[in-house]
């Protein structure tokens, strides 16, 4: 193994990363009175886009128009700024560790095409589920657990429980 490969493999100790992430989550609560999130930022972007492209339609779609009413400027939202930060932070970490590379990551047993098809299907399901469940892994499960929210624990159990229940059937994709 060359030095460069060794360097690119060097991930942070997971428990240290967990403590740091916990402190960041704690800061979000202390400063902003809310937890971390992700899917909500995409929702803001979609509401803004639908409103710009087809305002009459956005008015009729009550899920979007209700959101627009509660948040008149959807892009000036906490989660939008936070997720822009995630892109910057992820990029900085990747740059410092020599991991910046355009590629499709997949098991050697499957093709890139298969990986991308599954990524798309997975994304559609996760996006849909995050709206139904009122938040994703970060917004509902992680942030909810930190404040002892029953809903956060239900989300966590349902997400990971289903992952384990289905893991056997798609094992070829990963192992």
């Amino acid at each position: 193994m060359t030095t460069k490969e060794q360097k690119s493999k060097a991930y942070m100790n997971p428990y240290l990363a967990g403590v740091l992430l916990g402190i960041i989550l704690l800061m979000a609560y202390f400063v902003s009175g809310r937890g971390l999130g992700a899917s909500g930022a995409i929702k803001s972007a979609i509401v803004t886009t639908v409103d710009a492209v087809a305002p009459a339609h956005a008015e009729k779609a009550s899920y979007f128009s209700d959101y627009k009413e509660a948040h008149p400027k959807p892009m000036k939202a906490w989660l939008v700024f936070e997720m822009l930060g995630v892109l910057v932070g992820g990029f900085l970490s990747g740059a410092l560790s020599g991991r910046l590379k355009l590629k499709v990551e997949h098991s050697p047993k499957i093709t890139s095409k298969r990986r991308l098809i599954f990524a798309l299907i997975g994304g559609v399901l996760f996006g849909f589920g995050s709206q139904l469940g009122r938040g994703c892994t970060s917004g509902s499960a992680l942030s909810g657990m930190a404040v002892l929210s029953l809903g956060g624990f239900i989300s966590m159990a349902a997400i990971f429980g289903t992952g384990y229940a289905l893991a056997y059937f798609v094992r070829k994709n990963w192992i």
């Binding site: 997975g122 399901l125 589920g129 892994t137 349902a158 997400i159 992952g163």
Partner: peptide, 8 residues
């Protein structure tokens, strides 16, 4: 649904 999305 999110769990299914995660594993897929």
């Amino acid at each position: 649904i999110m769990g299914a999305g995660f594993i897929l």
